[in-house]
Computed example of a mutant assay.
Amino acid sequence: MNCPDCGHERTRVIDTESSDDGSSVRRRRECQRCSFRFTTYERPEWDSLQVKKRDGAIEPFDRAKLRAGIDRAVEKRDVPETTVTELVEEIEATIQARDTRIVSSTFVGELVSEQLRDVDKVAYIRFVSVYKAFSEPEEFLRELDAVLDAELDNFEPAAPDDDPPNS
C-alpha cells in the first residue's frame, strides 16, 4: 500500500479492526518514510453479481450482454422494445434476489428461456438453440415439438355457431 502523502511503497499496519457487520476490515497504517498515518478499508471485491461460466471462469454480470442475447432472439419479431427491457429487468431482479452473489450461466439461461417462452415462441426456439448448443437437427425438432405440444394443450376450439348455415 503506497503512502497517500509521500507515495512511499512501504507502510505498516498499526491496528486492524472488523466492522460491526463483518463486511469489511478497517486498518490503520503508517508510512515508514514520513510517518504519515492513514486508514484503509478492505471489502470483498465481488459486491456485485458474478456469473460462473460453463468452463468454470467467473466474470461480472453484464446487463448489456443479457440484453444482447435477448435482442438477437427477438430480432425481426413483433416484440416491443419495452417488453425486452422488462424481461431484462425481471431477470436481473430475480438474480439479485438470490442469497448468493455468484450465479451459474446455466441458471441465467434457464431464466431467459422461461421468460422468452411466454413472450414469443420463435424467439424462445432461437435462444434455446444457441443456449443449449444444438448440434443435430433432431435436438431442434424435439424442442420445437415440445413447444407445439404445449400450444396444442392450451388450444381451445371455437364454440360452435348456434345458427346452422343457410343452404
Rank of each mutant, 00 (worst) to 15 (best):
E9K: 07
E9H: 09
E9D: 14
R10D: 15
R10K: 14
R10G: 01
R10S: 10
T11L: 12
T11F: 08
T11Y: 07
T11I: 07
T11A: 10
T11P: 00
R12H: 12
R12F: 15
R12D: 15
R12N: 14
R12A: 14
R12C: 08
V13T: 11
V13W: 10
V13L: 06
I14F: 03
I14Y: 04
D15C: 05
D15A: 05
D15V: 04
D15W: 13
T16L: 02
T16P: 06
T16M: 10
T16C: 07
T16Y: 02
T16H: 06
E17F: 02
E17D: 13
E17N: 12
E17G: 11
S18T: 01
S19D: 08
S19L: 15
S19F: 09
S19Q: 10
D20P: 03
D20L: 00
D21N: 01
G22Y: 06
G22M: 07
G22D: 07
G22Q: 13
G22L: 04
G22S: 10
S23W: 03
S23C: 04
S24V: 03
S24L: 15
S24W: 14
V25I: 13
V25P: 05
V25R: 06
V25N: 06
V25E: 02
V25S: 06
R26E: 13
R26A: 15
R28N: 11
R28D: 12
R28M: 09
R28W: 11
R28S: 11
R28Q: 12
R28G: 09
R28P: 06
R29H: 12
R29Q: 09
R29V: 09
R29S: 06
E30S: 08
E30I: 08
C31K: 00
C31A: 09
Q32V: 15
Q32N: 15
Q32L: 15
Q32S: 15
Q32D: 15
Q32R: 11
Q32K: 13
R33H: 13
R33N: 14
R33V: 13
C34H: 04
S35P: 01
S35F: 14
S35C: 12
S35V: 08
S35T: 10
F36C: 05
F36N: 08
F36E: 13
F36L: 05
F36I: 03
R37A: 07
R37S: 04
R37G: 01
F38A: 02
F38Q: 03
F38Y: 07
F38P: 00
T39Y: 05
T39F: 04
T39G: 03
T39M: 09
T39I: 14
T40V: 09
T40Q: 03
T40E: 07
E42N: 01
E42I: 01
E42P: 02
E42M: 02
E42Q: 02
R43H: 05
R43W: 02
R43F: 01
R43A: 04
R43S: 01
R43Y: 00
R43E: 05
P44L: 04
P44Y: 00
P44G: 04
W46I: 07
W46S: 11
W46D: 14
D47E: 10
D47L: 10
D47G: 06
D47M: 08
D47S: 08
D47T: 07
D47Y: 04
S48R: 15
S48F: 10
S48T: 15
S48C: 09
L49A: 07
L49C: 09
Q50E: 08
Q50W: 09
Q50F: 12
Q50N: 11
V51Q: 02
V51N: 03
V51P: 03
K52C: 10
K52N: 09
K52P: 04
K52M: 15
